[in-house]
Amino acid sequence: MSRQSNRTTDSKKMNSELFTLTYGALVTQLCKDYENDEEVNKQLDKMGYNIGVRLIEDFLARSSVGRCQDFRETADVIAKVAFKMYLGVTPSVTNWSPAGDEFSLILENNPLADFVELPDNHSTLVYSNLLCGALRGALEMVQMAVDVKFAQDTLRGDGVTEIRMKFIKRIEENLPAGDE
């Protein structure tokens, strides 16, 4: 968080309603194309992953955030810089596990799920699963393997929307054979 410059504000903005509805159109299409919710969840995760892998570069370029010292700093950067920059919301970071390898992001507003109500026949759909994939993909590109999933979701009647993130391991750089 310490080396943040004001370049953060440079990125272009757009109306979040168009974004929300576009995402809605995509999920609707996936629900039509796939047989069951699990398949849709998987597809959303995959798309999110692809987004995360590309988004991290944009993030590093714009935010001038340096390497994080520990997982706590990573959590703060994700919540206060990344979410703010890309989705215009700042989730709170809570529920740290005693070992400090697991925490929750609590979202008061989830821009992906604005205007959404889940019909009864999609009770196992994780509507915003794209977010999990994006977080996983982005962190993988900075050598962190994490497990991300929705612990609670207001769409399913929970009081808050909670994303649970667990640190698995640091990914070692494996240089291709023959490279120094």
Partner: peptide
């Protein structure tokens, strides 16, 4: 409310 254009662009690209 606003979101970053990059977010939208990447989502649209996946679509």
């Amino acid at each position: 409310t606003e979101v970053s254009l990059s977010t939208f662009a990447l989502l649209f690209s996946e679509m």
